[in-house]
Computed example of a mutant assay.
Amino acid sequence: MTSTRPATGSVAATRSEAETRLLRPFAVLALVASGAITAFGLAWWLLPDSNPYTAPGSRSLANALLEPTQFAAVVVATGAVGLLLAGVALSRGALRRRAPLVAGAAAVLAATVIVVLGDAGTITFAGYLFGFSAVVAGVLTTAVLIVRAPRLGVPLLLLLLALLGVAVSWAGLTWDGVTTFLVRFGSGLVDNALPILVSAASVTAVLAWTVVAVVAGRTTREVRAFESWLVRHRRTVTVLAALGPLPYAIVRASWLTPWPLFAPAQGELSPAVLATGLMLGSGAAAACVLTLGLIMRWGRVFPRWMPRLGGRPVPARLAVVPGLAAATIITISAVPVFVLSLGADSLIEVIVFDLVLPLWFWGPMLALAVWAYAAERRGERREIGASAAVGRADADGA
């Protein structure tokens, strides 16, 4: 009688091959990012004036504690260790013989990059880009919904028109304010091209090393047990992650009321500043919704109203990669933003600031929510693959 159960050895081998295929591109990404970090460190060592971390307002913890030359040396060392570890991760049999070493070293290196290159400007750049994208995406989504799903689109259009009306008539938003913001936004991206490039390299390094740590760590019983716990509690973890940007969204929404929170004085709340705040608040609200998508049906199957894609499965990487990138950006900015908050006049103000913008909580929690989503989707694929294997075995037996 032919067994319909796949051999345990073949399943383990297939799983190991899948993890190796996942590890390699992120190890290559870590190699490239580590090379960029090494190059930046060497440039700052030879040309100290080119170091953007010496500019006022930069709050890298390592930069605050070290002299410029020492800081540059630490950056070079961090990049060099990354290059070495990437070589180990890319070697043959890395997951079989050196998996615990690779996992531990990658986790330590990701934390080191956060301490050495974490900068408050990272979340600022990302917040502006995401907020602007959220506004554009919201307008396009509303337009599509009006045509393909009027029951959703028309109420959403009325809500947006009502918010726009309040922003214009009550809060004082003007077209000149919007255009002034856009001009400042574009010029700011150009003027800060080098810091943005450094932030991109550091975020890429942390993201890549985090994924390498998780993939290599899954070869250990402890990490697999933790991953199983995450999947069981994914709804709670995801809801907690969605709460991260909510206080900031509420604060910015209050600018449309007679009681604006954390806003400039009434005479200083110009239309351009108002446009900036509302855009950032829109990004925070979009972040809440997208995070909840990790446990909603539309996070697995595209809604029917979406042209061409409606009804099709959502590729897991379409949610995992942006989600991990966002979690990395938030986490890498958490320490420097906390350091900035210490400049407040009182302990109460420090606590309030870190509750309104809880990067220290939001970033790690979002990373866990994305990890749980990825693990669950991977489990679904395994079940489908096992069912297909059983079906083929039954057919062969017949």
Rank of each mutant, 00 (worst) to 15 (best):
V147D: 12
R148N: 09
T276V: 02
T291M: 08
P155N: 05
L66F: 14
Q70D: 13
A265H: 15
V28N: 01
V166D: 05
S387E: 12
S270V: 00
F181N: 03
V183R: 09
R21P: 01
R98Y: 11
G363Q: 10
F130N: 02
T276P: 00
A105T: 09
F132S: 15
G79F: 02
L243F: 15
W259P: 00
F71W: 11
L347C: 00
G9M: 03
T180D: 11
G299Q: 14
G93C: 10
S202P: 08
L359C: 01
S333D: 11
P336R: 09
P6K: 04
L140V: 15
L160S: 11
L340A: 13
I330P: 09
I37D: 02
G310T: 05
A27V: 10
T78G: 09
V352D: 09
V206K: 08
S91M: 08
A106L: 04
G311Q: 01
C288I: 14
P303R: 12
D345L: 08
W45I: 02
R96G: 12
T180K: 01
P307F: 02
A319I: 06
R382W: 10
M1H: 04
V108E: 03
R59K: 07
A171R: 05
G283A: 06
D176F: 01
T122S: 14
L256G: 04
E383I: 10
P25T: 12
F353I: 03
T180I: 00
L324G: 07
L159W: 06
T2L: 15
A64K: 09
R304Q: 15
G385W: 02
F40M: 09
V350R: 12
W371P: 02
A208F: 06
I250C: 01
D394N: 09
T112W: 05
L101F: 15
Y373M: 03
T78C: 13
T69G: 14
D49W: 04
D345C: 00
V212E: 04
G82M: 08
R148Y: 00
R381S: 13
G82K: 10
P245R: 06
L256N: 05
F361Y: 14
V102T: 07
F71H: 15
T8E: 10
P48Q: 09
S58F: 00
A18Q: 14
T210Q: 11
V321Y: 10
A344I: 07
R300E: 14
A126Y: 01
N192W: 11
L84K: 01
G57D: 05
G379H: 06
L246S: 13
V237Q: 06
A386R: 12
L145D: 02
V178F: 13
A285T: 03
M306Q: 14
D49R: 10
V11M: 14
T38R: 02
A285C: 01
I37P: 01
F262P: 04
A241V: 08
A120W: 03
L117H: 06
I37G: 01
L159I: 13
T14L: 13
D394R: 13
W371F: 08
